[in-house]
Amino acid sequence: MSAVNVDAVSPAPVAGAGGPHRIDAIPLRHPGRWTAAIVLIIVVVLFLYGAATNPAYSWDYYAKYIFDQRISKAATVTLELTVLSMILAILVGVLMAVMRLSPNAVLRGVSWTYLWIFRGTPVYVQLVLWGLFATIYKSIRVGIPFGPTFFTITSADAISVFWLAVIGLGLNEAAYMAEIVRAGIISVNHGQIEAATALGLTWWQTMRHITLPQAMRIIIPPTGNEVISMLKTTSLVTAVPFTMDLYTRSRDISAETFTPIPLLLVASTWYLAFTSVLMVGQYFLEKHFAKGLRRAGAHG
């Protein structure tokens, strides 16, 4: 397309007195990039126009429900589910990772089996099974095995569906967290552990002050992913069945108002808002644990 002949337009100047001649060439044109950009802008504008004018989106309903109290309450519940199940997942995950790295074959085997089962079956199926917990174990008996019973409680009374949802989500996620934590721990240079050992630090002191802080650099980015993923996976707790979360609540409301589309958009907006906040949090965490390392910036 560009028919400019550089040689003809600006003949290469002979180096004269007073330093080099700056090259004054005509920049290469990029017609392909411009075409692609224009086409995409047109598509996006058409879509936005369509979305704004299409009555199926019912933006009036969207505006009515976006800050509805039931919705914001459900959003809080979703956030609680996310935070609590991630705490459980990280605790169990660290435990499983450490067990997996243990010299004890039984601990390694248990950790491997846990991973195999919880990572190998769908979380939806696991949540349905947790919902049937009270059917499988009708009562919880506290006592000595084959010996006396101190007290008995009915499962259905002891554990609410909310906590079953937290346990179901958390134990499933723990399998993934275990692998992330394990990858972080084994990424730390063995020389670090040797140096700490030679200084007389115990195994736990080495783990706490030397290994884990350095492993965090590897652990945090994928954990950020997992938190965001968990936020969205909470929409499956309807399988337990727990119905107070953001997605299920939106569906329930739309079942009364017959406006599923604006309510799905309302739920999506809340999920997106939470995800954005989490991304900001992850940025600062990563910056903190990059202390003293290349590309840290803060201490350059």
């Binding site: 240079n189 020389g191 670090q192 040797e194 140096a195 700490a196 030679a198 030397i210 802080p213 350095q214 644990f289 202390k291 003293g292 390392l293």
Partner: peptide
């Protein structure tokens, strides 16, 4: 040690 093994995060 040959490779110093200082703790990089401290």
């Amino acid at each position: 040690f040959q490779q110093f093994n200082l703790f990089p995060h401290m």
